[in-house]
Amino acid sequence: MTKDQVEAGQKEQNSVSVRSEEMHAPEGMLGMVWRRFRLHPGAVAGSIVLGMLVLSIILVTFSPYDPEISDIGSRLQPPSWEHPFGTDPLGRDVLTRVLYGGRISLAVGLMVVAITLVIGVPVGAVAGYFGGWVDNVLMRITDAALSLPSLLVLILLSAILREVELPFVERNNVVTIAVVIGLLSWMTVARLVRAAFLAIRELDFITAAHCVGVSNSRIMVRHILPNVVGPIIVESTLEVGYAIMEESGLSFLGFGIQPPTPSWGNLLSNAQEHMTKHPWLAIFPGLMIFLSIISINYIGDGVRDAFDPYKVLKQVGEV
């Protein structure tokens, strides 16, 4: 955290000198990306905020309060030193619950990304690399999935899946919600990856690899995929925010993660009836969603810029 802050400070101090550095820097790709990323003030601030959030979410294990055990004697107390975010209708510490809720919400976000990547990358890669009828079939499926009215299907799926007994997964838990959201959001990644594969497979170095007898799967994984990492990272970052938002919306509709397991979404939607009298119940989970998503979006923006050499050249050329 402190390291980040120092770097952020440095960045502001030498914003002029960095630019000249930019022109000649024969270093590793990741190093270059990192250096460019640091140029983006929003992304740096976002990383700091998100870093702090994640840190407190980890450290909440040491909270003196249990997120699920009630304390009827201290119901609905406003924020105080003992309970910085106040207490809820069962007397539980809201700060502790909000932070535990953050674990769930972020876990949903990360799981959604994992599902998106597990489905989207292979589909896109295979379609883009092989082309022809494989491409046609896979892309028609992708199109069909994109043609579903997503919120409507999201409601339908979460209503169904939380009541059906699935193998490996308990009814209506965090994984179910993540699966539902993930199943409806892999298509962007698939299209992105396909487009990149389509373009790159025509390039000379791929043809060369073919000539020396490198296998298709190796070409795909070792030679083409690394070139798509940038857009995938950008998309994945934004996906985390998207998933957190979707989960909170589903909670509002009553299809989200079920109490007593706290998530930002269900904490926020359970607070709506208390908004006037006990606003702290609503303010803090709302703030958490807001902060995390805004940080994630800024980080995504920074990553995009960092991976986009054109954009950087433009900046350099312009000033």
Partner: peptide, 22 residues
Amino acid sequence: ELAQQLVAEMLGDIGINLELSM
């Protein structure tokens, strides 16, 4: 929902574990 959580907690105190569903 709150009552459900309280009942689960009270029965948990006497050694009956309850998973909650809705």
